[in-house]
Write a protein that binds this DNA or RNA. Structure first.
Length: 204
DNA sequence: AACAACCTCAACCGCATCAGA
DNA sequence: GTCTGATGCGGTTGAGGTTGT
């Protein structure tokens, strides 16, 4: 039996709450998760008395209520990292988010779609306006390097001690990132990269 | 002030994968 | 081996806010 779209929507509305979460719902959800832990989302939704599906509860927790969620603007360093990781991993947002503590895959995906994809397109357009020789990348990282040069420049204001520490860490960092450009992606390298401790990504 | 166009981001959807029965 | 429910992921949508005319 085929339902008209409007009827389907009405039916769904009666089934469960949809749309933005209220503070009350957040509170109920957080309370139940604090007792039972973040699993068995269907049960959690029922226990919290929320007229929401488990999936919706999970998403709300993962993207908003979870502790240590970092909210607010993406820093230059984070943007640099996203660009590099996206170049490496493609649209594997959860993997990228895994290397950015406190950031969610949804947040990074949104940031990419609204900011970075445009930024890259703009850079590509600029490059296409140059001569063939000028526009030819010096190495495969060029696009990301151009996009992040401003961020790197801003780092000049940091203290000397931090600079020394950064430069040594960046050498290793760059070595890791440069390696795949030399040839096909190396699985050993990839797994090494993905297992790296989060602290590698923050030089503060 | 009013409207349109654009932007941002929370939330939803469908599909794939995993784990347990 | 198969089924089923739970979970995770990436793509997409749409409401609300902002900016431009």
């Amino acid at each position: 039996m085929q339902m008209a779209p409007v009827l389907i929507n009405e039916y769904r509305k009666k089934e469960s709450n949809r749309g933005a979460w209220t503070a009350e719902e957040d509170q109920k959800l957080a309370q139940v998760i604090s007792i039972h832990g973040p699993r068995r989302w269907k049960c959690i939704a029922a226990k919290a008395g929320l007229n929401r599906c488990g999936k919706s509860c999970r998403l709300r927790w993962m993207n908003y209520l979870r502790p240590n969620i970092k909210r607010g603007n993406i820093s230059d360093q984070e943007e640099d990292l996203i660009l590099r990781l996206h170049k490496l991993l493609g649209n594997r947002w959860s993997l990228i988010a895994g290397r950015l503590p406190g950031r969610t895959d949804n947040e990074i995906k949104n940031y990419w779609n609204s900011h970075l994809s445009k930024k890259l397109k703009q850079i590509e357009r600029q490059n296409s306006g140059l001569t063939a020789t000028e526009s030819e990348p010096k190495n495969p990282d060029e696009v990301a390097q151009v996009a992040t040069s401003a961020a790197n420049n801003r780092e000049e204001g940091t203290s000397r001690a931090n600079e020394d520490q950064k430069s040594s860490q960046l050498m290793i960092w760059d070595e890791l990132f440069d390696r795949p450009a030399e040839g096909p992606l190396n699985l050993e390298w990839m797994s090494k990269f993905l297992e790296m401790d989060e602290s590698w990504f923050y030089f503060a």
